[in-house]
Amino acid sequence: MAYSDKVMDHYENPRNVGNFDKDEKGVGTGMVGAPACGDVMRLQIKVNEQGVIEDACFKTYGCGSAIASSSLVTEWVKGKTLDEAATIKNSDIAEELALPPVKIHCSVLAEDAIKAAITDYKNKQ
């Protein structure tokens, strides 16, 4: 299947790959998985005292669309408040990356990952 240019760009030059110490108080970790395709995604945020996401990183084992979706989300959430980040919708991701219908679940995975990271951060406070 042909990937869009934007997916290829994120796939070849993924932004913010890595990990933060998940035990740190200011770090929120979201782990999700897509049973249908076996993709696993870990997305982490580093939040400052003002409740703003200062940094984000991810590690995804999956197809190009899943990698691009998580890479894009880490770019988007930086500088956003937790509330703003929580409004990111999978449809925004799918539209930005021009994902075909069969790859929509990759954007769902990324939305669920950021939501899970925010929840994890809040639970730790």
Binding site: M31, V32, G33, A34, P35, V40, Y61, D112, A113
Partner: peptide, 17 residues
């Protein structure tokens, strides 16, 4: 099976990673 359900046991996902 709902394939859009992405929640799994954290321990299992950690092990997958």
């Amino acid at each position: 099976l709902n394939d859009n359900d992405t929640a799994m046991e954290p321990m299992f996902l950690m092990e997958q990673m």
